[in-house]
Design a binder for these strands. Structure first.
Length: 154
DNA sequence: GCCAACGTTGGC
DNA sequence: GCCAACGTTGGC
């Protein structure tokens, strides 16, 4: 089992939106970055755990933990001209080059693991999240870091 | 709203 | 295949 971190702008899709979804399962689409896609397509397995990270908001940080319940499948939003995630290249090719996965809410953190707390935690210093200029919206989380986060905030 | 870092695009 | 221009990300 692996650990991941996925970023979402809470205005667009938040932890509470996930919890409020049918069966607390949401589909994670709209990823439009090859590195992020490749993680989802090639490495995401059912049972993997995902740290749900709120980005571009007042208090960025990890809101809770979700579980991968459906592995990568074509992200159809790329083919929909009305979607904000529309991708002309995919549409012209007649097949989406992007993928989505389904995740299920597993545990909401009583208090979020804020970015500033994470940053001030020596044990988490090496997290990809904290590396300068790092913007990947889907990224692996080292098992040591994952265990630390779960122990402290989970 | 600013801006640095980074990815993508497209002309050559 | 290079690289400049452009767009996006995301913290502040």
């Amino acid at each position: 089992m692996k650990f991941w971190l996925m970023k979402s702008e809470p205005d667009v899709f938040s932890w509470d939106d996930l919890e409020g979804s049918l069966n607390q399962i949401g589909f994670w689409d709209g990823v439009r970055n090859y590195q992020a896609r490749n993680f989802m397509r090639d490495e995401f397995k059912c049972g993997d755990l995902v740290f749900f990270y709120h980005s571009s908001c007042n208090s960025p940080g990890i809101a809770g933990v979700a579980e991968v319940v459906k592995e990568a499948y074509p992200d159809k939003s790329a083919l929909d001209p009305k979607s904000e995630f529309y991708d002309e290249k995919s549409a012209k090719a007649g097949a989406s080059r992007w993928v989505a996965v389904d995740v299920k809410a597993k545990q909401k953190f009583a208090t979020p693991a804020t970015l500033s707390e994470i940053r001030n935690t020596p044990a988490l210093k090496a997290m990809l999240l904290l590396q300068p200029g790092q913007r990947l919206s889907v990224q692996p989380v080292d098992i040591k870091h994952a265990h630390y986060i779960l122990k402290r905030w989970g």
